[in-house]
Amino acid sequence: MPDAHLRVFRGDSSTEGRFEEFDVPVEEGMVVLDALHWIQGHAAPDLAVRWNCKAAKCGSCSAEVDGRPHLMCKTRLSDFDLEQTITVEPMRAFPLIRDLVTDVSWNYEVNKTIQPFTPPTDVPQEDWRWQQEDIERVQEYRKCIECFLCQDVCHVLRNHETERPFMGPRYLVRAAGLEMHPIDQADRREYLKDSGGIGFCNITKCCTEVCPEHIKITDNAIIPLKERVADAYYDPIGWAWRKLRGGDAESGARAELPVLQGNPPQTDEAPD
């Protein structure tokens, strides 16, 4: 098997950075992260790479390989033409710390702005009853490993400095998991429209293309959320229908909860 020729980004936030080239002996089943470990062990011990599980589950080793966002532990060298140079760069949407390590802390700050899981306060947890079909959508969103490849490839985050920030596909997935949870009571549509900037997403599906967990981010999370926002703000027929029925801006679906029938709701006045 021929050696792999890797071109790896080196540098930190104080320098422009450069590419260094390495020849790495290839063994059966090797992934890009293995090649970087070989480089660390044999040629550049100070090469900075963030990694942890090496099983495509921790989401740490995100980088761009030949210009496309990948988990390096899931990207086999055999997928490349080893006659050609393989270029490995850090995620370009985030500030560089060093070499292949970027500062993704902004994402965690965005996460804090999303209203967390909000179950009804008057139904005891032991009375929650939902079926598999109620939770299947949410289970897809929960597969997310927070590798931030979707955030990296999203052109709104990558190419646009907007007047209002955009939360990005990762957090639209999280918001979808909360909004569609069968017992969650919060209404995040105003937040999604005004603060989260869901209108900035123009559904070009790059996030879906790079997701290592194969979450259909655009079709199953972002578009359904856009439709929920449209329910509340851009649907004159729905608005007229709700007025006729005497309902409010929330969808009628929110009136139904998967709880055990027959138990009276507990109140604050209940005796000790």
Binding site: G17, E64, D66, G67, R68, Q84, T87, E89, P90, M91, R92, A93, F94, P95, L96, T102, D103, W106, E109, V110, T113, I114, Q115, P116, T118, L157, R158, N159, E161, R164, P165, F166, M167, Q185, A186, D187, E190, Y191, K193, D194, S195, G196, G197
Partner: peptide, 28 residues
């Protein structure tokens, strides 16, 4: 519904190092 208000702004994303300009990419 109470909770985090919709007016709560997102932090501004610090700039990254993506190539800018039409067609600029590392893709092969």
């Amino acid at each position: 519904m109470t909770g985090i208000p919709a007016s709560l702004g997102l932090p501004r994303k610090p700039p990254g190092t993506a190539r800018q300009g039409l067609g600029a990419t590392g893709r092969l």
